[in-house]
Simulated scan of single mutants.
Amino acid sequence: MDKVNILGVEVSAMTHDQTINTLIDAVDNDKKKFVVTANPEIILHAYENRDYFQELSKADIITADGIGVVKGAKLLGRSIPERVTGFDLFISLLRKADQKGNSIYLLGAKEAVLNKTVTYIEEQYPNIKIVGKHNGYFDWEDPSIAKEIAGKKPDFVFVALGFPRQEKWIGKYIEQFNKGVFIGIGGSFDVLAGEVKRAPEIWQRLNLEWLYRLMKQPSRWRRMLALPRFVFKLYSYKQR
Score class of each variant (00 low, 15 high):
residue 188 S to I: 08
residue 109 A to T: 11
residue 227 L to N: 07
residue 141 E to Q: 13
residue 153 K to A: 07
residue 198 R to N: 08
residue 183 I to D: 00
residue 214 L to K: 10
residue 164 P to Q: 05
residue 166 Q to N: 04
residue 151 G to Q: 09
residue 160 A to F: 02
residue 172 K to V: 04
residue 205 R to D: 13
residue 123 E to F: 03
residue 141 E to Y: 11
residue 157 V to S: 14
residue 169 W to P: 11
residue 139 D to K: 15
residue 193 A to Y: 11
residue 223 R to Q: 12
residue 219 S to R: 14
residue 146 A to S: 15
residue 173 Y to M: 03
residue 210 W to L: 09
residue 151 G to S: 09
residue 199 A to V: 02
residue 186 G to M: 11
residue 151 G to L: 07
residue 113 V to L: 06
residue 150 A to W: 01
residue 199 A to K: 06
residue 185 I to Q: 08
residue 145 I to G: 11
residue 131 V to P: 07
residue 182 F to H: 10
residue 167 E to D: 15
residue 97 A to F: 02
residue 156 F to Q: 03
residue 115 N to K: 15
residue 231 V to I: 15
residue 148 E to T: 13
residue 214 L to A: 02
residue 200 P to S: 12
residue 201 E to V: 13
residue 170 I to W: 07
residue 141 E to R: 11
residue 212 Y to S: 04
residue 233 K to W: 02
residue 193 A to S: 14
residue 149 I to F: 07
residue 140 W to L: 14
residue 98 D to F: 05
residue 134 H to Y: 12
residue 128 I to T: 03
residue 156 F to P: 11
residue 122 E to V: 00
residue 140 W to D: 12
residue 108 G to H: 10
residue 192 L to R: 03
residue 231 V to N: 03
residue 209 E to V: 09
residue 208 L to R: 14
residue 114 L to E: 01
residue 212 Y to P: 06
residue 195 E to I: 15
residue 205 R to C: 01
residue 206 L to Q: 09
residue 136 G to Q: 09
residue 97 A to Q: 03
residue 218 P to F: 12
residue 151 G to W: 11
residue 128 I to D: 01
residue 205 R to W: 02
residue 173 Y to G: 07
residue 223 R to H: 13
residue 220 R to F: 09
residue 151 G to K: 09
residue 176 Q to I: 07
residue 195 E to C: 01
residue 225 L to N: 10
residue 213 R to W: 08
residue 186 G to N: 00
residue 217 Q to T: 10
residue 179 K to E: 13
residue 216 K to V: 14
residue 155 D to A: 14
residue 145 I to D: 05
residue 104 I to D: 02
residue 200 P to T: 01
residue 196 V to L: 15
residue 158 F to D: 08
residue 111 E to W: 01
residue 155 D to Q: 12
residue 237 Y to V: 02
